[in-house]
Design a protein around this nucleic acid. Structure first.
Length: 558
RNA sequence: UGGGGUGUCGCCAAGCGGCAAGGCACCAGGUUUUGAUCCUGGCAUUCGGAGGUUCGAAUCCUCCCACCCCAGCCA
């Protein structure tokens, strides 16, 4: 068998395990807790886990790590499955739930008690913290640590039966209160929570902790490589301890990689939830959110997200990835695949005084500049048009390549025109531009040799359609909005959303399907809103602007 | 001041003792009916620092420094 070309440390490990015969088939899992929507950081984890299975011809499970019913809900379970599928991944078999292993987990807890490896502790949370010691001082043994097996068995059964109040008792592993690794100072296995569970209803009043559940879930499912993020590294000795002390039939191994931290972004479910709850954004799927659902609504494609995840690599170092890389990924995809169209965001009327009043020419325009197979669309040309106010100036220096009074410009996919006059209001504001069309300039330069310097987009004033365009920008104006103890709420970008209620788009655009993406030439990439767009009331979201070296040079400021 | 990690170009990242890949960003040209795309070229005598081993070190050894994670009955 050919050894796959290892391109990251996990692939190297797996390739060696396969080569050494330690595992026959690679089985990984993506194990989200259903307590929030998936975000870009999860996309990386999904890419890593499903990607590993794919690379080595193995399997990847989707398992909900639902051991804490208080924070979880069906809404999250549904959204997570939808997001994973949307990203283009298929999990092996049915969706799994940690909760479906509750009985097995409980039986193993009983086993540990029988072996003298676990005990019921009556310390309350505060006392437990005191007994635990600190990072530099060892903890002290709980006064309940030496209860008899018989008493522990009885107490555990009564915990399960609901005889005790929440917080009154916990089940703990008997390991080492002096361990320098805090996770080994008699960790808690079960706590009492008298709340119904979204999957198991009220059949349980005690729930296993992450530490007692995760590795065993992996063992039950035959996971060979349990991949998680760096902060769980200290938990690995405990993960291994349970596997070694329990009669499990498989031997999963945990490996950790560095989580994704994109700049100008937060990826904490708690904080994202706060943005939603405080109304800073319209919901988990607000296009400004770094959630999968939000990015989807923003116009990102699964391919671009997957590409980005591959691009950033998988390592054990933990840093901040420039969002510019994510932006590159979506631009690359959309540049290649999005049909072109014309949209005017800040309309300024242009009247072609030499063009017949009722004449309409149905011009043909390529859907894509290089992919001719995408065909053409019809764009109506009329006497009155809209161009962007920013594309006209009464006077300008030679660096300005748009329409200037007395000068020419190419109307994209149409004629070259020359501005001959302006109409202003009392305050001197330009209301409309009068221009003339240069004859025979469709698809060719002017016969007189005076070539226009630039090209601008336009929309027929009489046949174009009105549309709502939402211009999104990054949600935070700080590169690391929540690093350290920074208050991320103080770094919200107040201009993260600008709604243009009366943009003009070429008529064909109103028939766009929801979620269809376009490049509005010279503006950026846009998508018909997944929920709000309709032919009668078109709504487009800006996914990302075009690269703009003109603006970068300060051109916009001239 | 305990334990566990990580340090290669502004950012991500290859490299695993033989003479510093690649991508993003940036800069300079060229093409262009999108100031986009595309194309070309530039961008680490140096790998957190200091010693040491070696003919040879980003790669091995020693010490030091910086940053991240851990004291939830969260995951």
């Amino acid at each position: 068998m050919e050894t796959p070309n290892a391109s990251n440390f996990l692939e190297t490990i797996i390739a060696e395990d396969l080569a050494a015969g330690r595992v026959q088939t690679v089985v990984t899992r993506f194990p989200p807790e259903p307590n929030g929507y998936l975000h870009i950081g999860h996309a990386k984890s999904i890419s890593v886990n499903f990607g590993l299975a794919e690379t080595f011809g193995g399997r990847c499970n989707l398992r909900f790590d639902d051991t804490n019913p208080e924070k979880e809900s069906q809404e999250y379970i549904d959204s997570i499955q939808e997001d994973v599928r949307w990203l283009g991944y298929n999990w092996d078999g049915e969706v799994r739930f940690a909760s479906s292993y509750f009985q097995q987990l409980y039986d193993w807890a009983v086993y540990l008690v029988e072996q003298g490896h676990a005990y019921v502790c009556d310390l309350n949370a505060e006392q437990a913290r005191e007994y635990r010691g600190t990072l530099t001082e060892p903890g002290r043994n709980s006064p309940f640590r030496d209860r008899s097996v018989q008493e522990n068995l009885d107490l555990l059964a009564r915990m399960k039966a609901g005889e005790f109040a929440e917080g009154a008792k916990v089940l703990r592993a008997k390991i080492d209160m002096a361990s320098p690794n805090m996770n080994l100072r008699d960790p808690i296995l079960y706590r009492i929570r008298k709340v119904p569970h979204h999957q198991t209803g009220d059949s349980w009043v005690i729930y296993p902790t992450y530490d007692f559940a995760h590795g065993q879930e992996d063992a039950i499912e035959g996971i060979t490589h349990s991949v998680c993020t760096l902060e769980f590294e200290d938990h690995r000795p405990l993960y291994d301890w349970f596997i070694e002390h329990l009669p499990v039939t498989a031997r999963p191994r945990q490996y950790e990689f560095g989580r994704l931290n994109p700049s100008y972004t937060i990826t904490s479910k708690r904080k994202l939830k706060q943005l939603v709850d405080d109304g800073v954004v319209a919901g988990w799927d607000d296009p400004r959110m770094p959630t999968i659902a939000g990015m989807r609504r923003r116009g990102f494609t699964p391919a671009a997200i997957r590409r980005f995840c591959k691009m950033i690599g998988t390592t054990r170092s933990d840093g901040v990835v420039d969002v510019a890389m994510l932006e590159f990924a979506i631009r690359e995809d959309l540049n290649e695949n999005a049909p072109r169209a014309m949209c005017v965001l800040d309309p300024l009327k242009v009247v072609l005084t030499d063009y017949p009043q009722d004449k309409v020419e149905e011009l043909l325009a390529a859907r894509h500049p290089s992919r001719t197979e995408l065909g053409e669309r019809i764009v109506p040309f009329t006497r009155e048009l809209y161009i962007d106010a920013d594309d006209f100036r009464e006077e300008a220096n030679k660096k300005y390549k748009r329409l200037v009074l007395g000068k020419r410009v190419r109307l994209r996919n149409a004629y070259v025109i020359e501005a001959v006059d302006v109409v202003k209001d009392a305050a001197g504001k330009v209301l409309e531009v009068h221009a003339r069309t240069i004859p025979d300039t469709l698809g060719t330069d002017p016969a007189d040799g005076i070539k226009p310097k630039g090209v601008i987009q336009w929309v027929s004033a009489s046949l174009g359609k009105r549309a709502t365009v939402r211009l999104y920008d990054r949600l935070f104006n700080h590169e690391s909005p929540d690093k350290g103890d920074r208050d991320f709420m103080a770094h919200i970008n107040p201009d993260s959303l600008r709604v243009v209620e009366q943009a003009w788009v070429e008529p064909a655009l109103v028939r766009a399907l929801p979620e269809q993406g376009f490049q509005f030439e010279r503006e950026g990439y846009f998508v018909a809103d997944r929920y709000d767009h309709s032919e009668q009331a078109p709504v487009f979201n800006r996914t990302i602007g075009l690269r703009d070296s003109w603006a970068e040079q300060g051109g916009a400021g001239e």
